[in-house]
């Protein structure tokens, strides 16, 4: 890991910090007064009723929507500066691969674009080929997306997100459309990647067990308008294992979050 999470207030190494940030779409207030500090290296999962602004929060952090008020900083920079420096990457629910490009060519996309906009494209420590190997797709680099299963496509998308070695990884229900087995497998793989790369992860999900299994912290949002309901620390030991989900402690967290979700 690059940096270990520090919880002392002075000299905190923040990956992202939101300062009473709000987002409006016309008359609709999608997010109101979000204040949040995310330490570098942490794994956050985000839960909340559907339509409460989870995606909007990730899009706010990734400079896709501007704050109506308040501010957002990534690694002490503006979101635009962070975008131009490729400090963060985004993984969508849909893999959003370009169907005419092979798996490898899709992973290389971030290295090919953006220079005209003055982006300094950082090449990560790993080559695109090594990243495909990291996500378990060695030997499939020439396959076109339609030749891959949903889970494989999502793994290509994860490899693509890692190619510039982002310090912050934003994931919007990346495994939401996958079957249970594939999802379990990719959850474990993501935890490995997180440990390997030391990146910070913000992971939106609508599954309570997934949020507990992956996260060190669970951010619960509530709706109309989107606000922070609570932040729950998950004190289960790392590395997480599938068997942990049978443990009473795991289920205690799930129960607690379910109750919180009902109150939203």
């Amino acid at each position: 890991m690059e940096t270990s999470p520090q919880h002392n207030l002075e000299g905190r190494d923040l990956a992202a910090s939101l300062n009473s940030a709000s987002v409006k779409f016309g008359d609709l207030t999608a997010l109101r007064d979000i204040t949040l500090d995310i330490d570098r290296g942490d794994f956050w999962t985000i839960l909340g009723p559907s339509g409460c602004g989870k995606s909007t929060m990730l899009r706010l952090v990734s400079d896709l929507v501007p704050p109506a008020s308040g501010s957002v900083e990534i690694l002490g920079k503006s979101t635009e500066a962070a975008r131009l420096a490729r400090e963060f990457a985004f993984v969508f629910q849909d893999a959003t691969l370009l169907p005419w490009r092979s798996a490898l060519k899709n992973v290389e996309l971030p290295l090919e674009v953006g220079r005209k906009r003055g982006v300094e494209v950082p090449h990560g420590d790993r080559t695109p080929l090594e990243l495909l190997e990291l996500v378990g797709l060695k030997g499939r680099e020439d396959a076109l997306p339609h030749e891959l299963s949903g889970g494989m496509r999502q793994r290509v998308a994860i490899a693509r997100s890692l190619v510039c070695q982002p310090k912050l990884l934003l994931m919007d229900e990346p495994f939401g459309a996958l079957d249970e087995m594939t999802r379990d497998h990719l959850n474990l793989q993501l935890l490995d990647i997180w440990k390997e790369t030391g990146t910070t992860i913000l992971f939106v999900t609508h599954s309570i067990p997934e949020a507990v299994f992956l996260g060190q912290k669970v951010l619960m949002l509530m709706a109309h308008p989107g606000r922070v309901k609570d932040v729950v620390d998950i004190e289960l030991p790392m590395p997480r294992q599938i068997a942990m989900r049978e443990q009473p402690e795991f289920n205690k967290y799930c129960g607690k979050l379910r109750k919180l979700l009902e109150e939203c």
């Binding site: 899009r59 990734s62 896709l64 985004f90 969508f92 959003t96 370009l98 674009v113 953006g114």
Partner: peptide, 20 residues
């Protein structure tokens, strides 16, 4: 979503045209 991806990658208009 693909256009959002392009924006996150700070792709220029001509890159979006030729590559996407």
């Amino acid at each position: 979503q693909t256009l959002e991806l392009a924006r996150i990658l700070s792709a220029s208009k001509s890159e979006i045209f030729w590559k996407i």
